[in-house]
C-alpha cells in the first residue's frame, strides 16, 4: 500500500514539484538574508547606475534630475581626458598582465621544488600580496620621489647618475605603475601557476624525458599547454583587475582635485577620472556612464580573451 502510494506520488508531476519546493525552500530561506543584502547593495545600485547614466544627476538630493538620453555617453566619447585615461589604462593593462604572467611562470617553474630555500623565497615573493596595497603604494611614492632624497635617486646617485624627476615627468608614470603592480602581483600569479604545475601528471614529463626531450622542449610541449586553463584564469582576472586601477593612481599622482592624474594626465585612469567627475565635479550621471563604458570594455575584452583561450585549446 505504501509502495503503491509512493509510486503514484512520484509519477504525479505536481506532487514531484511540491516535493522539490519543500526540499529547496529551507535552503532558499537560509539564503534570503544574503539575497536581500545582495539585491539592495549590488543589484539595485547596478540598475540604478544605468538609469543615472541617462540623467544629469549631480548627486545632490535637492536638485531635480533630468533625463538626458545618451548625452553623457556622447560627451565621454568626445572627451579628450577620457581618451587619455583609456590610452593610459590600455598600456598599463597590456604591460602589467603580460609581464606579470611571464614573471609568475618563471618564478613558479624555478621555485616549484619543495626545498627550504624555495619555500622561503616563495613566501618572500608572496608577501606583497598580503600587504595593504595603499600602504605599499605610499612607500613606493617615497621611493620614487623626485628630489635627491628619494631612495631610487639615492641609488642612481651612488651609481654616478643624475637625479630623475620621476613623479614630475609624465613619461615615468606608467612604467612606475607597471613596476609597482608587478612587484605586488607576481607572487600571487606564481601561487596560481604553482597550483597549475602541481596538477600536471609528472609521468608525462618523465615519459618525455625517457624519450630524450630536454627540459626546454618538455616545458614548451607539455608544461605550458597543460597550464593553459590556469594561464587563462590569470590573464582574464589580471586584465579585469588591471582595468580597475585606482588607488595607486590616486596616491602617486597626489590625489588633489587639481593634481589628480599627474602632469599631463600621465597617471589618469578611467576609474580615477570617474572619481573626479562624480565626486569633485558633481556629475554622477557622467560618472555612471563612464562606469558602464568601462564595464562594456572589460566584458568585451574578457570574452575575446576567453575565445582566444578556447581557440588555442581546440587547435592543440
Amino acid at each position: 500500500m505504501t509502495a503503491i502510494a509512493r509510486g503514484s506520488q512520484a509519477a504525479n508531476p505536481k506532487v514531484r514539484h511540491q516535493s522539490k519546493i519543500s526540499k529547496y525552500l529551507p535552503l532558499y530561506g537560509m539564503m534570503l538574508p544574503f539575497l536581500l543584502l545582495f539585491f539592495v547593495f549590488t543589484v539595485w545600485p547596478l540598475f540604478r547606475s544605468i538609469q543615472l547614466s541617462l540623467t544629469d544627476y549631480t548627486g545632490i538630493a535637492a536638485r531635480e534630475i533630468n533625463f538626458v538620453g545618451v548625452d553623457n555617453y556622447r560627451t565621454l566619447l568626445s572627451d579628450e581626458r577620457f581618451h587619455t585615461s583609456l590610452w593610459n589604462i590600455a598600456r598599463y593593462v597590456f604591460f602589467t598582465v603580460t609581464i606579470n604572467t611571464i614573471v609568475g611562470i618563471i618564478l613558479a617553474v624555478v621555485l616549484q621544488a619543495q626545498g627550504k630555500i624555495n619555500q622561503i623565497t616563495r613566501t618572500l615573493f608572496f608577501m606583497p600580496a598580503v600587504t595593504s596595497g595603499l600602504a605599499t603604494t605610499v612607500v613606493w611614492k617615497y621611493v620614487f620621489r623626485s628630489d635627491k632624497y628619494g631612495l631610487m635617486n639615492i641609488l642612481i646617485a651612488s651609481l654616478g647618475g643624475d637625479v630623475i624627476r620621476f613623479l614630475g615627468t609624465p613619461k615615468y608614470y606608467m612604467p612606475i605603475f607597471v613596476f609597482i603592480s608587478i612587484w605586488g602581483g607576481c607572487g600571487m600569479t606564481m601561487v596560481f601557476i604553482l597550483a597549475g604545475l602541481r596538477s600536471i601528471n609528472p609521468e608525462l614529463n618523465e615519459a618525455a624525458a625517457i624519450d630524450g626531450a630536454d627540459s626546454w622542449r618538455r616545458f614548451w610541449t607539455i608544461t605550458l599547454p597543460l597550464l593553459r586553463p590556469t594561464l587563462l584564469y590569470v590573464v582574464v582576472t589580471g586584465t579585469i583587475n588591471a582595468f580597475q586601477l585606482f588607488d595607486m593612481a590616486y596616491i602617486i599622482s597626489g590625489g588633489g582635485q587639481d593634481s589628480m592624474g599627474g602632469p599631463l594626465d600621465a597617471g589618469l585612469t578611467p576609474l580615477l577620472y570617474l572619481y573626479y567627475l562624480g565626486f569633485t565635479r558633481f556629475n554622477i550621471g557622467l560618472a555612471s556612464a563612464l562606469a558602464w563604458i568601462l564595464f562594456l570594455v572589460i566584458i568585451v575584452l574578457s570574452l575575446i580573451l576567453l575565445r582566444i583561450g578556447r581557440f588555442t585549446e581546440d587547435t592543440l
Binding site: 623626485s146 628630489d147 624627476r165 613623479l167 614630475g168 597626489g254 588633489g256
Partner: peptide, 11 residues
C-alpha cells in the same frame, strides 16, 4: 623648477 605636484619642503 621641479615639476612635481607639491614637492617636499626638504629642498
Amino acid at each position: 623648477t621641479p615639476t612635481d605636484a607639491w614637492p617636499d619642503q626638504v629642498a
